[in-house]
Design a protein around this nucleic acid. Structure first.
Lengths: 219, 219
DNA sequence: GCGACTTTGTTCCTGCGTTCACAAGCGGTT
DNA sequence: AACCGCTTGTGAACGCAGGAACAAAGTCGC
C-alpha cells in the first residue's frame, strides 16, 4: 500500500472543517471558482495560511484562476472522512442535548444521531427531531447494532464520568464532552472537551484588557 | 498608576478559566490546600504548564506546601475580571439559546444575562430561567440601561451578521458567536467564534486516522 | 538546631504554528 | 507566438506554546 498519510496537524483539520462549510454554501449558490483570498475572507483566516492548509491535500488549485468549488469541497470531505455519514450517540437530553440533537449543522455535515439517551424517566419516550429518547439500559445494544464509534456527552458534570465509562465499555472510541469536567478514559479512546463558558471568559478578559489599555492611553 | 499588565497569552487565559472552575469546586468541598500536581490532574493539563500559567499572576504558592485554594481562586477571578458579575445580552432563543440561558455555568462564573432577545413573535414573552424573552426592538434600550458590553449570538446563520451589526451599534464591544458564519465587525469590537460541529469533525478525523494507523500495523 | 523531603518557580530547549515574501505556472490578449 | 497580470504553492523567519530538568525555599522529623 502506498499510503502517504500526510499527518495533518490538528489546527489545520479544524480549519478544513470551516472551509468545507463555506465551500458547501458556495456550491449551493452556484459558484464554480474561488480564489484563496475570497475563501480566506469568508472563513475568517489569512490567505497564505489557507493555501498552506490546502497543501496537505496535495495540489488542488489552478494558478492564475483559483480553486474549483465542487472539486475542492469533495476532496476536503473525503480527507475529513465525512463523505458518508457517521453514526453518533448522544447522552443527556437536557436543554443542551436537545439543541445538539436538533442542530442541522451535524446532520448536514456527515453525522447522524442513531441514539438519544437520558437517565431521567420523564424524558424517556419524548421525540426529538423524529427520534425517541431511550433509557440508558439500551445503550450497549444500540452501540453494538449501529457500530457507532462517536459519542457526545451533554449531561450534568457530576454524572459525566460514569457516562464516559459506560460509553467506552459499550465500544465508543471517540467522545465529545460538553460537561465541565476533565474526563479520564482508557488508552485508545479520544476525549475532546468543549466548555462553553470558557470561551465567554476569554472574551471578557480580552475586552477588559482592551479597555484597560485604552484607559492607559488617555491617562 | 503602576499597571504592570503582564500580557497573559490567550491559551493561558483559557486554562485559567478551567483552574478557576476546579478551585471553586475544591473550595465548596472544604479543601484548603492543593498541590500543582493534583490541580493539574483535575484540570487535565501538565503540572509544569500549570505552574507556568500561575506565574503570570505573580508568586502565589508556598514551596513545600502548595497553593491555598481560596486565595488562588480569588486571585484568578480578579485577573479574569469575574470578581463581580458582568451583564450579557443573548440573541436567538432557539434550542441552543435556551440551553445557554439556563446553563448554570454562566451564572455561577461571573456572567448574568440581563436580556434575552428573539425576532420571532411567538417566542417573545416566554420565560426562560425567570426572565422574559424580549423583542429585538428593545435591544438598544436594554444595552444602554444595563451597560452590557458582552453579547452572545445563538441565531441561525443567515441573520447572524445583521444581529452582529445591531449589537455593535447598541454598544456591545465583545461578541461570542455560535452561528456558523464568520462575522465582520468594526475595529474595537472583538468577535469570537464557536462552531459546535467543528469539534465533532476534528474528533471524527482523529478517530479515523487512529483506525487507519492501527490497520496499517496489522497489515 | 540540623538534615532530608516536598513542592514551587524558573530556565532552557525543542517543536509547532503563523506570517511574510518570492518563485512558478496558467489564462487571456495582442 | 510572446507578453502580462493574476493566483497558487513553497521556502524561510519569527514568535509562541509545551515539556523536561534544575535550583530555591519552606516544612517536618529527629
Amino acid at each position: 500500500m502506498s499510503s502517504p498519510r500526510p499527518r495533518i496537524p490538528e489546527a489545520t483539520v479544524a480549519r478544513l472543517a470551516v472551509y468545507l462549510r463555506v465551500l458547501a454554501a458556495l456550491a449551493d449558490a452556484g459558484r464554480s471558482n474561488v480564489s484563496s483570498g475570497e475563501l480566506a475572507s469568508a472563513a475568517g483566516v489569512n490567505p497564505a495560511g489557507l493555501r498552506k492548509d490546502l497543501t496537505h491535500l496535495g495540489p488542488c488549485g489552478v494558478r492564475g484562476v483559483g480553486y474549483e468549488v465542487v472539486t475542492l469541497r469533495d476532496r476536503i470531505a473525503r480527507v475529513l472522512g465525512v463523505e458518508r455519514s457517521r453514526p453518533c450517540v448522544l447522552v443527556g437530553i437536557g436543554n443542551l442535548g436537545t439543541a445538539l440533537a436538533d442542530y442541522a449543522g451535524f446532520g448536514s455535515r456527515g453525522f447522524r444521531f442513531v441514539g438519544l439517551f437520558d437517565a431521567a424517566p420523564g424524558r424517556v419516550g419524548q421525540e426529538i427531531g423524529g427520534q425517541p429518547v431511550r433509557p440508558m439500559e439500551d445503550l450497549d445494544e444500540v452501540v453494538a447494532a449501529t457500530a457507532a464509534t462517536l459519542g457526545v456527552i451533554a449531561t450534568p458534570a457530576d454524572v459525566a464520568q460514569s457516562v464516559c465509562d459506560r460509553l467506552t465499555t459499550a465500544g465508543v472510541r471517540s467522545i465529545l464532552n460538553f460537561a465541565p469536567v476533565a474526563l479520564s478514559a482508557p488508552a485508545g479512546v479520544d476525549v475532546r472537551q468543549v466548555d462553553l463558558s470558557v470561551e465567554l471568559q476569554v472574551l471578557a478578559f480580552l475586552g477588559q484588557q482592551r479597555g484597560a489599555a485604552a484607559a492607559e492611553v488617555t491617562a
